[in-house]
């Protein structure tokens, strides 16, 4: 059973066993506008919780995607590098960014669930 969690920086993370897939939320893609460029880490490298894992850019804004957990990058979504519009169209599905092998399978414990994140976004106005 996959667990879906969210961060205050508007990343989502879906855990399945000791791996997890990471992307940006629908709210994040709306705030950025049309995404024109995505920079992804190389598979095999490490990401550290709270540190920059990827970069996402629209024509007029750039934003870092922070790793919500620490681990090793297993795969990245080359499809969004070639066609960044996928992130706008389907941020939680086809627009995923990277998957990692978790250092700590319990790393998602402190993060928000879907309802808590929805409330958090509502607060942002």
């Amino acid at each position: 059973m996959a667990t879906l969690r969210f961060t205050k920086d508007h990343e989502w993370i879906r855990q399945d066993g000791d791996t997890a897939v990471i992307g940006i939320t629908d709210y994040a893609q709306q705030q950025l506008g049309d995404i024109v460029y995505v920079e992804l880490p190389a598979p095999g490298t490490r990401v550290e919780c709270g540190k920059e894992a990827a970069v996402v850019e629209s024509a007029k804004a750039a934003s870092e995607v922070y790793a919500p957990v620490s681990g090793e990058v297993i795969a990245v979504n080359e499809a969004i590098a070639g066609d960044p519009a996928k992130v706008n169209a389907d941020p939680m599905g086809e627009g995923w960014f990277l998957s990692v092998k978790l250092d700590d399978p319990n790393a998602l414990d402190g993060l928000m669930d879907e309802a808590a994140y929805a409330a958090f976004v509502a607060e942002q106005g």
Binding site: V36, Y37, S58, A59, A85
Partner: peptide, 13 residues
């Protein structure tokens, strides 16, 4: 204007 609003997203993609 000589050109109407320009597609900056397309230009950057």
């Amino acid at each position: 204007t000589p050109r109407r609003r320009l597609d900056e997203t397309g230009a950057a993609r």
